[in-house]
Amino acid sequence: MTEIRTPRLLLRRWYDDDLAPMADINADPRVMRWVDDGSVLGLDATAEAIEGWEDTWDDEGFGLFAVELLASGELAGFTGLFVPDFLPEAASEVAIGWRLGPAFWGQGYASEAAHATLEFAVQDRNLDRVVSINRVGDTASENIARKLGMTREREAEDPRYGFPLHVHAIDLTEFQA
């Protein structure tokens, strides 16, 4: 089983007990504001999502990690790697993404987890490039991308919803783990 420990976090595969706390995160409109069309997700949709994330691990050898606080064992959300097949011009890339519950915002957890994920991308998966895709206006995600050393590469449009997107990228051959 793939696990990564940081000073404060455990990044790991998904457990059955993660469903309810992840569904609570996905049901919060503040969390989902910048995701897809902004709609919240219920328990069934979250279960389908987690199943899909686990399938990606099996198919690609990478995926979205559950992010657990070491101190309390609480599920904070996720971070990890995925193929952004929703965006045709980036469908051949590997992207990094994150989603944490509001109780975990503003404490550096997303940056810490994302940095560990980039280390995983380089050291364990031998990737030489990773992108990040976020909706224009999502300044929190922009800040995390910048902290990771990513630079804005281009703008795009979400073909599903028409929202403008920023695509950031990092050359991992120069990444300082």
Results as ranks from 00 to 15, higher is better:
residue 34 W to V: 01
residue 164 P to S: 11
residue 46 T to D: 12
residue 21 P to N: 02
residue 64 L to F: 15
residue 127 L to Y: 04
residue 13 R to G: 14
residue 67 V to S: 03
residue 13 R to E: 13
residue 41 L to I: 14
residue 132 S to H: 05
residue 149 G to I: 10
residue 84 P to W: 09
residue 139 T to G: 04
residue 98 W to S: 03
residue 148 L to S: 03
residue 120 F to S: 09
residue 64 L to H: 14
residue 162 G to M: 01
residue 3 E to S: 13
residue 89 E to Y: 06
residue 106 G to C: 11
residue 19 L to M: 09
residue 105 W to F: 04
residue 100 L to F: 10
residue 154 R to N: 04
residue 91 A to D: 07
residue 140 A to P: 12
residue 168 H to L: 14
residue 98 W to K: 00
residue 138 D to N: 15
residue 86 F to G: 10
residue 158 D to A: 03
residue 15 Y to M: 07
residue 158 D to C: 02
residue 118 L to E: 05
residue 122 V to K: 10
residue 90 A to M: 13
residue 143 N to C: 03
residue 18 D to C: 12
residue 108 G to D: 06
residue 157 E to I: 03
residue 16 D to M: 06
residue 106 G to N: 09
residue 21 P to W: 03
residue 168 H to C: 14
residue 103 A to Y: 10
residue 156 A to G: 05
residue 114 A to H: 06
residue 152 R to A: 05
residue 15 Y to D: 07
residue 72 S to K: 09
residue 164 P to F: 02
residue 46 T to S: 13
residue 104 F to K: 02
residue 22 M to Q: 10
residue 35 V to H: 11
residue 133 I to E: 00
residue 41 L to V: 15
residue 103 A to N: 11
residue 90 A to C: 14
residue 163 F to M: 07
residue 82 F to D: 11
residue 102 P to R: 08
residue 39 S to Y: 11
residue 38 G to C: 14
residue 61 G to K: 04
residue 154 R to L: 09
residue 107 Q to A: 15
residue 152 R to G: 01
residue 81 L to W: 13
residue 143 N to L: 05
residue 51 E to F: 14
residue 59 D to Y: 06
residue 170 I to R: 14
residue 76 A to Q: 09
residue 118 L to S: 11
residue 112 E to D: 08
residue 35 V to I: 15
residue 106 G to E: 09
residue 85 D to E: 11
residue 3 E to T: 15
residue 68 E to W: 05
residue 23 A to W: 14
residue 18 D to T: 12
residue 79 T to P: 03
residue 42 G to K: 08
residue 90 A to F: 00
residue 57 W to I: 00
residue 54 E to K: 07
residue 84 P to L: 01
residue 12 R to E: 01
residue 118 L to N: 11
residue 7 P to G: 12
residue 137 G to I: 05
residue 7 P to V: 07
residue 92 S to V: 05
residue 6 T to A: 05
residue 142 E to N: 12
residue 164 P to N: 10
residue 78 F to W: 13
residue 93 E to K: 01
residue 135 R to C: 01
residue 163 F to I: 04
residue 23 A to I: 08
residue 63 G to F: 09
residue 150 M to N: 01
residue 153 E to G: 07
residue 25 I to E: 10
residue 146 R to K: 13
residue 117 T to A: 06
residue 16 D to S: 09
residue 115 H to M: 07
residue 59 D to R: 10
residue 137 G to N: 01
residue 60 E to M: 07
residue 46 T to N: 05
residue 21 P to I: 10
residue 166 H to K: 14
residue 33 R to E: 14
residue 136 V to H: 00
residue 176 Q to E: 11
residue 87 L to T: 11
residue 153 E to P: 04
residue 166 H to V: 04
residue 58 D to L: 10
residue 24 D to I: 10
residue 63 G to I: 07
residue 109 Y to A: 13
residue 36 D to Y: 12
residue 81 L to D: 13
residue 123 Q to S: 12
residue 33 R to M: 12
residue 85 D to K: 06
residue 57 W to R: 00
residue 72 S to Q: 09
residue 112 E to C: 08
residue 115 H to W: 11
residue 87 L to C: 11
residue 139 T to Q: 07
residue 143 N to W: 00
residue 54 E to N: 08
residue 132 S to P: 00
residue 154 R to Y: 02
residue 92 S to T: 08
residue 164 P to Y: 02
residue 42 G to P: 06
residue 92 S to I: 03
residue 67 V to D: 03
residue 163 F to N: 12
residue 113 A to C: 04
residue 159 P to N: 00
residue 169 A to C: 15
residue 43 L to G: 09
